[in-house]
Simulated assay, not measured.
Amino acid sequence: MAKVNKLPLPVNDDLATLSNVARHRQMKGYPAIWAEQSTLVAAYLQYTASQGNPHVLMPAPISMTVGNLMRDYYKSSKAVVLAYINQIRDARADKVCAMCGSFGSETLDHLLPQANYPEFAILSANLVPACPCNVQRNNTVKGVSQSQRVLHPYFDSVLGQRLVAADIEDPFSQAPKMKLKILLNPMDPDFDAVRFHVDEVLMKTAIIEHFETAWANLWRRPSLLIPKLHGIAMISQPKLVYAIARERGRLDRRHRSLNNWDSVFLSGLLNVPALTSLMQRINDGPPELL
């Protein structure tokens, strides 16, 4: 199973693409891009070597003309040599967003934004299938500390873990306050990057509203979110844990992501207060709840 928004690199030879673009006499970028090709090649190689780390990469010293041409190539992307751009987008249009875990990846996110890094506008390793969360993130990619940065779905192996869970305050309330908690050990070397990613990407989406809706549905009818509960009049904590974990596993497999929003919500139910609240709701509530 492909895990937690960790994606394989696109199958595209970016250096060959750059060479084709630079030498294509019928494309409007010729000969400007050809004249600065060596600078662009060096930037591409540094991107790969640094795995897209914005603390390492400095904007390439290219002219404004070439920067604008690279942005224009991405916007049009109709040339055969640039066909891979739409292919990357279309291949995951109906999949979970690699950046935030929501349901849909109908856009491409320039992980390092075009505004600051136009040299990477057509670099396949910099094009991440995503939902509109890339608009909310805007151009934010790094914090003050060297360890604070947005996670890269092509390079960050930490995305192969279950990273976050819903944090349900006062689960005995019909409308508890929802937050996000990080599951990674604070001593983990990736913790600061994960926390930065949560603050700058996930918390700018509608994930909290998604949790609130899921809780309201769970409160009304638990078996709608956890089908294993259907027809059960009384349940023990071990059986409830099993039912939640089983449904979470099914969602992990269905969405090919451990951090899809529904799995993240169910992870938030696997603590004593939330389990106790849900058990009371099931065991003390009327049969129609199930």
Results as ranks from 00 to 15, higher is better:
211 F>G: 03
206 A>Y: 08
210 H>P: 01
166 A>L: 04
155 F>A: 15
193 A>V: 03
217 N>E: 06
212 E>R: 04
195 R>H: 01
213 T>Y: 00
183 L>Y: 06
150 V>A: 04
135 V>C: 11
186 P>G: 12
179 K>D: 07
183 L>P: 09
188 D>F: 09
149 R>W: 04
201 V>K: 01
195 R>Q: 00
180 L>Y: 04
153 P>N: 05
147 S>C: 12
187 M>C: 13
204 K>R: 04
186 P>E: 12
135 V>R: 15
164 V>I: 12
134 N>R: 03
138 N>K: 10
158 V>R: 06
138 N>W: 12
137 R>P: 00
162 R>C: 05
150 V>S: 03
213 T>M: 01
218 L>I: 07
155 F>C: 15
132 P>F: 04
139 N>M: 08
183 L>V: 06
190 D>E: 12
148 Q>T: 10
147 S>T: 14
149 R>V: 03
146 Q>E: 13
187 M>T: 15
202 L>K: 01
144 V>W: 06
165 A>I: 11
163 L>W: 11
136 Q>R: 05
162 R>L: 08
203 M>S: 02
208 I>G: 01
184 L>Q: 08
216 A>N: 14
153 P>H: 05
156 D>Q: 06
197 H>K: 01
142 K>S: 11
156 D>C: 10
131 C>F: 09
158 V>W: 04
142 K>I: 06
157 S>V: 14
195 R>L: 01
130 A>N: 05
160 G>Q: 11
182 I>M: 12
159 L>I: 07
197 H>Q: 02
210 H>W: 09
140 T>C: 00
158 V>T: 09
169 E>Y: 10
194 V>P: 05
201 V>F: 12
160 G>F: 07
175 A>I: 14
139 N>W: 11
170 D>Q: 13
180 L>H: 02
192 D>P: 12
194 V>Q: 01
178 M>G: 11
183 L>F: 08
156 D>I: 06
171 P>F: 15
141 V>C: 03
127 L>S: 07
152 H>W: 04
148 Q>G: 13
137 R>A: 11
202 L>C: 03
194 V>D: 00
202 L>G: 03
212 E>I: 02
171 P>V: 13
149 R>H: 05
158 V>M: 06
163 L>V: 09
191 F>N: 05
154 Y>H: 15
148 Q>M: 13
156 D>G: 07
164 V>H: 01
217 N>A: 10
203 M>N: 03
161 Q>F: 08
195 R>D: 01
142 K>A: 10
159 L>F: 09
209 E>S: 08
